[in-house]
């Protein structure tokens, strides 16, 4: 399917501002994320990258003081509309965190848990749970390493393996979007490389939004890049957004150029 013919965006933020109490952490972000692409969010520390990402699946609601203004459309539908259930939103917009956080359950159970929770149904012509767990672990490029120890605790894996397990866990509920907040920052270079490859592969099926501090990583894995920065009152704002190749070769804004070349931030 030619990608150019998909006008519908996975996520659109319109005039999004996020507050922690009275403090405005990000202001007036307007941005449209393409389906089945990898979009990278970069920017200096504290500019609100995580904040924006967490508002995409209403995870920010778990912080009691957080509130938002503006709209976030998921497949054209405002996810903050009163009739929308955050539980439903989070099932369809999954998340992978900075620090690997597998459940203290078996590897198998880590993957199966979310699927079962969301009413996984097997049947004729459909995978049963064992097959589905295998599929997800294969997609997360972890299957070969764990296939003989599915009943061991997820905590017994190495950091990189744990993170891939978390990715398998996320895709096991068949989300449409996967949000990743610095998914490789706690990992060594080899594990990082594996995660990056994985992101590229997953982009065939999922929309991926990844926050990263690593410029090379953003350049390597992403199709689009959004650069955030802070203004005087410490509120984060979107500075520039476009094709990764364009952002990294011919940035329009001098702040973007400064940040990418390491002169700023």
């Amino acid at each position: 399917m030619p990608q150019t013919l998909s006008p519908q965006y996975a996520i659109q933020a319109k005039n999004l501002s996020v507050y922690y109490g009275a403090f405005r952490a990000v202001k007036n972000i307007t941005l449209s994320i393409e389906q089945r692409k990898v979009t990278a969010i970069i920017g200096p520390s504290g500019c609100g990258k995580s904040t924006v990402l967490r508002s995409f699946n209403r995870m920010n609601e778990l912080t009691p003081s957080a509130s938002i203004a503006g709209e976030i459309l998921f497949m054209g539908q405002n996810i903050y509309a009163p009739e929308v259930d955050p539980v439903e939103v989070r099932r369809r917009v999954g998340m992978v965190f900075q620090k690997p956080n597998p459940f203290p359950k078996s590897i198998y159970e880590n993957v199966a848990w979310g699927a079962r929770l969301n009413g996984f149904r097997s049947g004729l012509g459909r995978p049963n749970m064992d097959e589905w767990v295998e599929t997800c672990l294969r997609k997360a490029a972890l299957w070969d390493e764990v296939k003989d120890k599915l009943q061991q605790s997820g905590l017994s894996l190495s950091g990189g393996q744990q993170q891939r397990l978390c990715i398998a866990r996320a895709i096991a509920v068949k989300p449409e979007i996967i949000l990743m907040d610095e998914p490789a920052s706690a990992l060594d270079p080899i594990a990082t490389l594996k995660i990056e490859e994985l992101m590229r592969e997953l982009a065939e099926e999922y929309t991926i939004i990844v926050v990263t501090h690593n410029m090379q990583q953003a350049a390597r894995v992403s199709d689009f890049t959004a650069f955030f920065s802070m203004d005087e009152d410490r509120a984060g704002a979107l500075v520039e957004y476009g094709l990764t190749t364009q952002i990294f070769t011919t940035p329009k804004d001098s702040r973007t150029e400064g940040y990418i070349t390491g002169r700023y931030g």
Partner: peptide, 22 residues
């Protein structure tokens, strides 16, 4: 592209969110 065809093994989810919320 490596995987042009959709995976033939796709599960079905019936999340029944309303019931769980109740």
């Amino acid at each position: 592209m490596k995987n042009p065809l959709p995976n033939p093994l796709q599960p079905v989810f019936e999340p029944e969110v309303a019931q769980r919320n109740r």
